[in-house]
Amino acid sequence: MTEQELFARICRGDEEALDLIYRKYYRMMVRMVVTNSGTEQEAKDIYQEAIVVFWQKAISGNLVLTSKMSTYIYSICQNLWRKELDRKSRHTSEQKETGELVTKDKEERARIIRNCIEQLDETCRKVLGYYYFDGMSMQEIATRLGFANTDTAKTKKYKCKKKLSELVKTLYSEHDFLD
């Protein structure tokens, strides 16, 4: 399979093609982080993050590759790792303390929302994920999930989102009451 074919598959939202890319460059990317003061785990996290960024950009349809995919992903890894190193060096204990309260509250809200997402059926999770994260159009979602047309996809998205909002509101009220 050529580089172009692989990239085209990724642009179409083919997750198996993403798996191939991930495997293909794993060592190269991990090595870059490890040889720049990172641990193997940090390297893996950075690479996975980079792959996801690449995925989002590719399927958005706005990414025109002017270099090899490896070069592009490598530069994402480098940027992410640079940011991580900066974050580490700036992370004083004072900042840690002040940030803790906000983070805890945010984490709790995120946990509740996550629980609600898990309560949705698989189709709803996919529709919302494809729409908000992958940035797929209604046409792409309809094709991918076998809906009759874009209107069906749009209605489904609306209903799923509404249902999720209601679930979150219910859980939020319970949470406030318990507090």
């Binding site: 993403l18 996975q48 995120a110 996550r114 609600c116 997402i117 919302l128």
Partner: peptide, 22 residues
């Protein structure tokens, strides 16, 4: 709330993709 929900949806999808890679 809607903003957080959308962030939550994105985070969940990202988590699924990373779990797949993992």
């Amino acid at each position: 709330l809607q903003k957080d929900i959308i962030e939550g949806i994105k985070a969940y999808r990202k988590e699924q993709l990373i779990a797949r890679l993992d």
